[in-house]
Computed example of a mutant assay.
Amino acid sequence: MTEPQKRVILVTGPARSGKSEWAEILAQNSGKSVIYVATAQVDRTDSEWQHRIQQHQYRRPSDWLTLEVPVQLATTIGEAAETSCLLVDSLGTWVANLLDRDAASWENTIKELLQYINNCTCDAIFVAEETGWGVVPAYPSGREFRDRLGVLVRRVSAIADPVYLVTGGYVLNLSVLGDRLPS
Rank of each mutant, 00 (worst) to 15 (best):
N173W: 10
I159F: 11
V153A: 13
D123C: 14
D43N: 11
L174F: 03
A15L: 10
Q55G: 08
S84W: 02
W94Y: 00
R52S: 05
A103N: 08
E68A: 07
V11D: 08
G142N: 08
T12Q: 13
R60I: 07
Q5E: 14
E68S: 02
F145S: 06
C85F: 03
Y116G: 08
F126Q: 05
C120P: 00
A103Y: 06
G142C: 08
P182I: 03
N119T: 13
D46M: 03
V135L: 11
V156C: 02
L87D: 03
D63G: 00
L149C: 03
S157H: 01
L91P: 00
G31S: 10
I35F: 00
L174K: 04
T12R: 07
A124S: 14
A38Q: 05
I35G: 05
D161G: 02
T167S: 10
G132S: 14
Y58H: 14
Q72M: 11
D63E: 14
P140R: 09
S157N: 05
Q72E: 15
L91V: 15
F145N: 07
K111Y: 11
G78W: 03
L26Y: 01
D89C: 05
A160P: 03
S62V: 08
C122A: 15
V136W: 10
W106D: 05
L114H: 04
G92A: 14
N29V: 12
C122E: 00
V171Y: 00
D123A: 08
R44C: 12
L181C: 09
I9S: 06
D102L: 04
E112L: 13
N173L: 10
L86V: 03
T121M: 12
Q54S: 13
L99G: 04
S62I: 06
L86N: 00
A160Y: 04
V166K: 09
E129P: 09
D46L: 07
K111V: 11
K32P: 06
L152A: 09
E112H: 13
P4H: 10
Q57T: 15
Q28P: 01
V88F: 01
L99F: 01
D100H: 10
T66E: 10
S62H: 05
R154L: 12
A38F: 04
V163D: 00
A74L: 10
V11M: 08
S47D: 12
P70V: 13
S20E: 11
Y36F: 14
S62Y: 06
A74S: 14
W49R: 05
F126T: 06
Q5N: 12
L113F: 09
Q41K: 13
Q57A: 12
I9K: 04
E107Y: 02
A38H: 05
Y139H: 10
T121N: 13
M1W: 13
G150T: 03
V8A: 07
A138R: 07
S141G: 04
D100F: 08
Y139Q: 07
W22D: 05
R60T: 06
L114W: 07
G92T: 06
L152E: 10
Q115K: 14
D102R: 01
L152C: 08
I35A: 03
V127T: 10
R44T: 15
V42H: 10
T45I: 02
R52D: 11
A160L: 00
A81F: 02
P4G: 07
A103P: 03
